[in-house]
């Protein structure tokens, strides 16, 4: 399996008669090295404006507020590292982190495997737009409504799922109500909403793999499983990296489902980090402290994303 990076492939395979591919390591023509930056700036301009105004500025503001005592309704007062000191000793913050990680593990684990399977099944079995459309349906329904419909369907006394369990002779389960099942339940509800969508992303990646590769492997007598491990997975890597980075970050920000169902309970079993931030900011008016939790979460996510990108070498492609 070739694992050359784009950059290397440029230097490794210089083609006579063409200009050397853009590369930092080889010696390109000066025109190109200096030339791409202005062009890049033009291409980046609109996105950069949006980024600076609607993301960077709020982020910087949040970072600043994390060093203040700010109740939202009165001007912020500088508090130095107080919020961060409080954070380290806050039992509920660590609990929120733990609960969130539990959620992410179940959510991402199940969702990624199911979506990958689903995408490969669709890719190998059918081009039916109908099936893809059906699988995407849950994504069309707003988070809040998805949470509400499952919440009623899973009710221990009145929910249809428990009615069905009763019909087949099983005891009802209080899915959202037990401290032990609440988080996995919320995680699986969100798998239901996002699995088709994730599968669609992966499916788009599968489409980008040339059919000729599979045809060649099939002529060589490779089995489906072998093709999956040796062709599909490696060639899917950039897209998988994308999907994983996006879904993990999204998963950490679980909020809506908790807000309309368990509201953090029972006890603190589903008090996920984002819900905790919301409570601190908008219900308890500890905006400065909420900002500090937010910065902590941001650092964790950024670290995680960097790690994932490194591990999955998202910038590379085997298809070159």
């Amino acid at each position: 399996m070739r694992t050359s990076t784009e950059r290397q492939s440029g230097t490794a395979e210089p083609r006579p008669g063409t200009s050397p591919p853009q590369s930092d390591t080889s010696a390109p023509r000066p025109r190109r090295r200096a030339g791409d930056l202005p062009v890049a700036m033009v291409f980046l301009l609109p996105a950069a404006v949006g980024f600076a105004v609607f993301y960077l500025w709020p982020a910087l503001r949040t970072a600043y507020l994390s060093f203040t005592d700010y109740s939202l309704l009165a001007p912020p007062e500088w508090a130095g590292l107080d919020n961060y000191r409080r954070l380290l000793g806050d039992r509920l913050f660590w609990n929120a982190l733990k609960v969130t990680v539990e959620y992410v593990v179940v959510n991402i684990g199940v969702q990624t495997i199911a979506a990958l399977g689903l995408a490969v099944l669709m890719h190998r079995l059918t081009r039916s737009g109908l099936i893809r459309g059906v699988l995407l349906l849950p994504y069309l329904v707003a988070n809040v409504v998805v949470a509400l419909i499952w919440y009623t369907m899973l009710d221990a006394q009145l929910g249809i799922v428990n009615q069905a369990l009763e019909w087949i002779g099983l005891d009802p389960v209080a899915f959202f109500g037990e401290t032990s099942t609440a988080i996995p339940t919320i995680a699986l509800v969100n798998v239901w909403r996002h699995v088709g969508y994730t599968a669609l992303l992966i499916f788009a990646g599968l489409q980008a793999i040339p059919k000729t590769v599979y045809e060649a492997a099939a002529t060589d007598g490779a089995s489906e499983a072998r093709m999956f491990w040796r062709i599909t997975l490696p060639l899917l890597r950039p897209v998988l990296a994308l999907v994983l980075v996006l879904t993990v970050i999204g998963s950490f920000q679980i909020f809506d489902t908790v807000a309309v169902t368990t509201k953090g309970g029972p006890i603190n079993a589903t008090r996920v980090i984002y819900y905790y931030i919301y409570e601190q900011a908008f219900q308890r008016f500890n905006f400065g402290y909420a900002a500090a939790v937010c910065v902590a979460l941001f650092a964790i996510l950024a670290g995680l994303a960097l790690l994932q990108l490194k591990l999955l070498r998202a910038g590379d492609s085997d298809l070159d």
Partner: peptide
């Protein structure tokens, strides 16, 4: 009902 049942979906009025 137990807390778990009360929290599992619908409201007490339902």
């Amino acid at each position: 009902p137990s807390l778990a049942i009360a929290r599992s979906g619908t409201s007490v009025n339902d």
